[in-house]
Design a protein around this nucleic acid. Structure first.
Lengths: 228, 228
DNA sequence: GCTGCTTTGTGAACGTGTGCACGAGTGCCT
DNA sequence: AGGCACTCGTGCACACGTTCACAAAGCAGC
């Protein structure tokens, strides 16, 4: 009975967890589970049950006390909130190792993000076909973005080419960027950028490994150059 | 004058940013920059200057007021804190698209994480060579981990095989896992796990795109199944 | 040496995220 | 119909992270 629901802002931390809930719920639905409690969902998602309830409460009160949440309906609501009611074609810039893997990784298309095109600046790579998608020249980027209505771009270039790739994506009309290059991209305020840096993840693990090993034992011989 | 510095715990948020500072500082050092201010470092890293100073203060007071930070010394300190004073060999489980890309992506080795081995459960993939690394059978995992002293494992399998891959890694003696599969891994408490889920990143971007587009206009026709 | 400019290091205020605890609603069983 | 067991939704307190603002400290020029 609330047709004009106020458009509350959902906390970033919650937005980051919704895709996880969505995946779990979809799996459970496929296995024939109709109803699920916050406790069970929390267990499967590796989080706290109260957190699950709070997260879901941002979508509205879609649970039933004493029972739980109806899986199918919750899936629908999360998909709607995340904007997954339709596909979002993506364009990949950079046909190197990573670009090829991303194009070949079927998971994108299945999850609603079909690869609308992959481009590279290197003429030698242009024309080759990667798992059904032909590599085109980066100059064709604006055309691909326009005709396929692409709003998400993926930067999979070496670090040195990443800023140029981002500039071209923005000029072509893309409004969100997923950046795999180890560079902080400079883009207009309105552009949403998310960064995935594999080396950073490993270095964070390294920190914990080093800490586990006792840490300070290596601290000998710190030769401060200009020591008094 | 503090040879026995108390081992303060560094906040997670700071640990996640240190690798970024490290990369920038290394680049600046290569370009001949000897000294850098928190302001400049913040600008290059896309963060707030106060945050940079607070982050660096967890390492100790290594700056000079009125001048800034000595690049080379700061690089040394961050590397030490992150445990990057020596290499951390990694083993990759799964020789599919992603595993191949990771093995072929030179960035790992350069940044101190050489690929000690890549394994797969599929006999047809075993024996093939990916950019210098031969794919071995997953049963050889314990041997690789032991002989090469590997403590970090990378899960690059399909979702369905991820838990088994993690179990095997843990049994082989790995203590940190970087997980690319869209699954929440169950592992012993002592094991450190970090997850990178490409679909999640795209779905977060999708949320912002959908929100940008006006959001609520698609909310019509929400057919709650058991509506009273 | 003193003055003025620069930049660090950090206390304090603020904002965001987490988790507990419990009232409130729902279904089931008798 | 009433009681009971269950689970959601949320107020509240606490922890964590961010940002401001400023004293302390160093350098340069005179």
């Amino acid at each position: 009975m609330a047709p004009e629901r106020a458009r509350r802002r959902i906390p970033d931390a919650t937005v980051a967890r919704l895709p996880v809930y969505l995946r779990i719920l979809t799996e459970q639905g496929d296995e024939g589970v109709d109803n699920i409690s916050s406790e069970r969902l929390a267990e499967l998602g590796g989080v706290n049950a109260a957190k699950v309830r709070k997260d879901l409460s941002y979508l509205g009160s879609y649970g039933t006390r004493g029972v739980g949440y109806e899986v199918a309906y919750l899936v629908y609501q999360i998909r709607r909130e995340l904007g997954l009611t339709h596909d979002w074609p993506v364009v990949i810039v950079g046909a190197g190792n990573l670009g090829q893997a991303l194009a070949g990784y079927g998971g994108f298309g299945e999850r609603g993000f079909p690869v609308a095109g992959i481009v590279d600046i290197d003429d030698r790579k242009v024309g080759s076909v990667l798992s059904g998608v032909r590599v085109r020249h980066i100059d064709e980027l604006p055309q691909i973005v326009q005709t396929k209505r692409v709003s998400i771009g993926v930067v999979a270039t070496p670090a040195s080419a990443a800023q140029d790739a981002a500039d071209r994506l923005v000029r072509a009309g893309v409004t969100s960027i997923l950046n795999f290059a180890p560079v902080v991209l400079a883009v207009p305020r309105a552009i949403e950028v998310r960064k995935v840096d594999l080396a950073v993840e490993l270095q964070i693990l390294s920190y914990h490994e080093q800490r586990r090993a006792g840490g300070a034992i290596h601290a000998v011989g710190a030769t401060r150059p200009a020591s008094a």
